[in-house]
Structure formats: C-alpha cells, structure tokens
Nucleic acid binder design. Structure first.
Lengths: 222, 222
DNA sequence: TTTTAATTTATTGTATACAATAAAAAATAT
DNA sequence: ATATTTTTTATTGTATACAATAAATTAAAA
C-alpha cells in the first residue's frame, strides 16, 4: 500500500484520531520511506480535506464539526442527486446490470455484519461506495464523477456504517433499490429525489450519533 | 510568484498552449528552481485538471473538448446557482455592500477594455472572479466555497473574456446587477435562476466561439 | 520484412543533506 | 510580575544525487 492509502486508511478506521498531530518525519519513520513520498501523500490528503496544516508544526487530522457534516452532506445531496438524475437519462442496459450486481454485493456484505469488526465494516462501506460509483459512471460525465469523489469524505461514511444497526442498513438497502428502479424506468426526477433523500438520511443519522454518542469509535491496534 | 502560480498563469494566458508538453526538468530550468517545488506545483495543477500526465514522459497542458466545456459549465451552473440562493438567504448588509463594490470594480475594469491587451483582460477576469467569490463568502458555507473554486477552470473563463466584445461584457454586467438585486431582496429562487442563466450564457458563448473561431488565442512573448 | 528481444535514453520516483523559518523557550529589561 | 528581546529548536522547504522504469531505439531472429 502506498503512503497516501496507508495514511488515509489509518484516518478512516480511526487509528489516527481526529485532532492527532502528524509530522512528515514521524510518518516517514512509521511507513519506512523517506520524506519525499510522504510529502506527496500529505499534499493529497490536505486537498481531500482530511488533514490540515497546524501552524508550521506538522498537520492535524481534521475534526468534523456538526456544521461541517451539514455542509458536506448537503453538497453530496446536491451533486449525487443530480448524478442519479443524469444516470436515469443516460444509462445503458449493461450499466443497469452492473448497478444491480453492485447492489447485490452490498446486500451480501450487509448480511455478514458483525458489529465492531473493522474488516466487515470496511467491506460494507466499499460495496456501498461501488454501488454509488456505478451510478455516476452511467452519467458519462467525467467531470461530475471526479467532483463527486472529491465531496465524498470517506471517514465520515465509514463511521456511519460503524454506528449503523441492522435496521438502518436494511433501510439503506431498500432506498438503493428505489433508486435503481427509477434509473431502470428512466425516471430522472424520481431517481434524483430518492438519492437526495438517501443522502439526507445518512446526514441525519450521523448528526444524531454525534449529538448523542452511543458507540465509541474503535481504538487500539490494527 | 511561486511556481504554481507562474505555471498556471502561463497556461491561462495561452503561453503554454493546450497540448504543449511540460517536463519537471524544463520547468525547473525555466523558473530557476529545483525540481522539488516544481513537483509540488505539478501535483496541484494536475488536481486542478489543467495538466494531465503523458505516459510517464512529462505532462501535457489539457485541451478542453466541447464535451468538457459542457460538463464543466453545467457543474458550475449547479453549484454556483445553489451558492447564489444560499447567499440570498444568509448575506449580511456588509457582505451585500462588498458585492456592490466588487461589481463596481468589474464595471470599471470593463470600461477600460482594450481588446487583445492581456493585462486588461486579466483585470476584467480578476474583477469578475472577485464578484462571484464575494457571493459565495456570504453563504458562510466553507465547503461549498472550496468546491466551487475547484470547478472554476480559470483558463476557460479567461479565454471567454478574451473573445468577448463590449456588448457581451455589458450584458454580463447587467446580469450581475440582476443577481445582486435578488440577493439584496432576499429572493433565493430568483438569485439562483439568474446565476444559472448567467453561467449557461457563458457556456454557450464559449461553445459558439469554439465552433466558429473568430479570434485566435494570443501567441508570442509575455 | 516483420516480429521479438536487447539496449539505450528520457523522465519521474526516492533518499538525503542542508537551508529557511516560525514557534517555543530562555534571558533580559521594564 | 510583565513585557520585550534573544536564543534555541522543531519542522517544513529546497537542492541534488542516484534509483527505478517506461518508452524509444536498435539489433537479432523468424
């Protein structure tokens, strides 16, 4: 795994907790490479909004406020709902088939849920992400796609899956099916609204958990 | 000027034309710095979508197709119109005042138009950009702001000002005033739609010029 | 002559030493 | 005790040499 993915991964699973301070040298030592590739990774992570410079004394892992969550999820809602509408207009039969396959994979990942097992949750998050990405591929809009990927802050989504219970996961699966049906039927407005609602639901789940933390984020060895 | 802005600037004014090949070493030589800061700049420019890697043999300045223009401007329309709506809801009296000032500066920059004079056109583009940015500041939505800035591909906008005649510039000034009025009156829907129309107008002007190039991009020494 | 393999070359990737500098700590003055 | 200046230190910024490697070129084989 390259330095970028290694650090990102550690942030996603919470090994590097929000607020933790990172320096080039310490990261280089920990990943057994020189500072040069670490600097490349850091620049990318900064542009991703996952770390922020800390007064010329390294970086800290970004802590997301309630307002950050609102803003990020509202942006996602705007862009991803637009994407779903475009997908409903432009999808081919083959692409629809791929979406079905990705959603089936998501269903299977959910069925293997073991709470607090990092790798199970990673699988669920990954399957979910691939389903969403399949939709945006079908828009044939490369710029929209790449911008959506910049708005999607993976650590936030990972955390929401970490907190989700089975009921919540099954509900999200049902909404995926609604979105799929709308795309299948070439109903852009319905696909758009279903996707918007899906993202808002995710946003509110995160906000509720933040206001009233029932489950701590995992801590300890990888 | 740092390497990032130096290279970006050269791309914007067309000194580095679309398709031109760039290598780290040549840029380092030309800007009289080592490859290290050039590499940082290149990474940023790549993420901006202004250059693309060319089979491990340097980079080339991005050539924008008609489809690219459509996708980028449509994205801008989506995000900036949303931003204008939010600004109409959230702007303070002071922020409204700033917007007026920026638009006055835009009006003055236009009044000094001399076609084909790079620095005049740079001023117009800069003033226009500052007006738009003032609107997005008023949203108090830092994430929206930063994403809009990623969608705004400055070379495209610069080129459109390069091609614009006085009539087109005055029309764009009038639309700015419409947007301002809607923000002043706290009419989010109208601000949104006016901004959307403004961006689509810009898009179509660029598409028309691309289909039927009346004015060549500037070439020669800086 | 065309395909395949070997060699060379252009270019990015990485390590490392040193320079610049902002922040922190210590010393001095008020 | 507080404010100001000086010194030290932690950390990023930059230059440069060398390594890795994909692409281009040349040579060899079919």
């Amino acid at each position: 795994m390259n330095p970028y993915n290694a650090i990102k991964s550690a942030i996603i699973i919470g090994e590097y907790e929000p607020g933790k301070r990172l320096t080039e040298e310490a990261l280089a030592e920990s990943l057994q490479v020189s500072r040069t590739p670490i600097r490349d990774a850091i620049k990318q992570l900064e542009s991703d909004g996952l770390i922020i410079p800390f007064k010329r004394r390294g970086y800290i892992v970004k802590e997301f406020s309630i307002e950050d969550i609102r803003q990020i999820y509202n942006l996602r809602a705007l862009l991803e709902s637009h994407g779903a509408g475009e997908a409903a207009l432009n999808r081919t039969k083959e692409e629809l088939q791929f979406m079905h396959e990705k959603n089936t994979a998501y269903e299977q990942a959910i069925s293997k849920l073991k709470r607090s097992d990092i790798s199970t949750i990673k699988n669920i998050q990954q399957a979910n992400q691939e389903f969403h990405e399949e939709i945006f591929k079908a828009t044939k809009n490369e710029h929209l796609r790449s911008h959506i990927s910049k708005v999607v802050v993976v650590p936030l989504i990972f955390r929401s899956f970490y907190w989700y219970n089975e009921r919540q996961l099954l509900r999200s699966l049902e909404v995926h099916k609604t979105i799929l049906k709308a795309i299948e039927n070439r109903e852009p407005e319905r696909a758009k609204i279903a996707m918007q609602e899906h993202i808002y639901q995710g946003r509110d789940d995160v906000l509720v958990q933040m206001a009233n933390p029932k489950i701590e984020l995992w801590k300890g060895e990888v």
